[in-house]
Simulated assay, not measured.
Amino acid sequence: MTRFASLDDLRTACLDLPDGDSEAAAEVSRREAVLTKPPRSLGRLEEMVAWLARWQGRNPPRLNNIEILVFAGNHGVTAKGVSAYPPEVTAQMVNNFASGGAAINQLAHVAGAELRVVALSLETPTADFTESPAMDEDEFLDAVSSGYDALSPEADLVVLGEMGIGNTTAAAAVSAALFGGGSRFAGHGTGIDDAGLKRKRDVIDQALTRHADALNDPLGVAASLGGRELAAILGACLAARHACIPTVLDGFVCTAAVAPLAKLHTGALDHVLAGHLSSESGHRLLLLELGLRPLLDLGMRLGEGSGAAVAVLVLRAALACHTGMATFADLQVTDKPG
C-alpha cells in the first residue's frame, strides 16, 4: 500500500506530474479533419476524443475498462445541524450500493462501467472542524493513500464520486478556504431549509476563523476542513494523473476535493473533465475558479458519481463517431474547396 510519509512527501507527489501525449491528441485532430462532416461540427465531442487520446497516450483511445470509484465518509460537523439527514444514512446508502439499489448502480450498468465503493471508517466520523482539525496529519494521509491505492492502473477512464452526510458543508468550507469569499459556496445540500442554510454558513465562517493559520497551505486546508472521502478523492485523482488515466469528476464535493491539487500546481487538473454542473449553488462558482467547463447541465445534485456516469455516455458517443465514421477519402466524397 502507498503511504505518504508526510504532508511534504504528498506535496512533492502533487508537484511531480507527467504531461499528456500531445502527439496522440494531434493524431485525433488530424483524423477529425477528414471525417465526413463539416470541420468542428461535432463541437465538444471532438475535443473529448482528443482529451482521451492525450491522457491514454494512444490513438484511437478506448473505453473498454471504465471504473467508477465512490468514496464514503462521515463528518463530525453534522452535529451542528448542517444536513437534512442523520449521519447513519451514509452507511445505509453504502449498503444500498452493495445491493444494487442506488441510482449509481443503474447508471454504471448503462455506462458499461465497473462500480467500486470504498467506505472510510464510517464508524469514526471526522472531528467537528469548528472545534479542531477534521483530521490530523496521519488520518488525512491514510485517507489520501486509500484513494491513491483504490485506482486500477489498467483503467481506460476513472469516474470519481462520493457519499457522505454533511460533505457539502466540508466542500463549501474547503472551497472558501482556497478561493475566499467566506460562506459563498454554501448551498442547500440534501435539502436543508433556510434556517439550516444559515447554520451551515455560520459553521463555515466559524471554521475559517478557527483554522486561519492553515489557509495558506492547500493540503492543510484539505486536512483541517475536509473529510476522509474528500481526501481519498484527492488521492485517486493524483494517482490517475501519475498513471495518465483520464478522469471524470462528479459534482460539487468531488470538485472541492481535488481543488487543492490545482492550488498546488496550475496544470494539476489537465487530465480531468467536469462531468456535469450540479444544481448545488457552490459548484458553478468553484468550476469558474478552476477554469473547468462542465459537460452536462441536467439539474442533478445526487452525488454518488451519478452526473459523471451520465457524462460517460457522451464520451462513448464521441469515441464512436471518431472511430466509426468514414473519411472523405473512404467514400470519395467531395470535400469543400481548399
Rank of each mutant, 00 (worst) to 15 (best):
G164Q: 12
F328P: 12
N65A: 09
A186G: 03
A171S: 02
K336R: 15
L17H: 10
E229T: 03
T169Y: 00
A13Y: 02
S83L: 01
S41D: 06
L7K: 12
V82S: 00
E27K: 07
V159Y: 06
L178G: 07
L315N: 10
A119V: 03
N216G: 14
T327S: 04
A119G: 11
A26V: 01
A98P: 01
R11V: 03
A72R: 04
S83Y: 00
P246H: 11
R284S: 00
Q92S: 08
A212I: 04
L115E: 05
F140P: 13
V110I: 14
A186Q: 07
D9S: 06
R44G: 00
V28D: 11
A25C: 02
A262F: 01
D16G: 04
A329H: 11
E139A: 15
A231W: 10
C244R: 15
S145I: 14
A186N: 02
A257L: 05
I192M: 05
D202L: 09
K263F: 00
D19A: 08
L331G: 02
L160S: 11
P60E: 02
Y85D: 02
L42N: 01
A111L: 08
T126R: 05
R3Q: 12
I68W: 01
T2W: 06
A222E: 14
L292Y: 02
A214R: 15
A318E: 12
D335I: 02
D19Q: 07
L269D: 01
V312K: 14
K336T: 15
G57H: 07
G267N: 10
D21N: 04
A309W: 06
L225E: 11
S29R: 15
D142R: 13
R54H: 08
A262V: 04
D217Q: 09
A256G: 06
K198D: 14
P18W: 02
L238K: 14
F328E: 13
L219R: 09
M1H: 09
L292E: 03
S278R: 01
A150E: 08
W55G: 03
A231C: 10
G180I: 04
N167H: 08
D142G: 06
F71C: 02
A231H: 11
A318D: 15
A256D: 03
G191Y: 11
Q56K: 02
D213G: 01
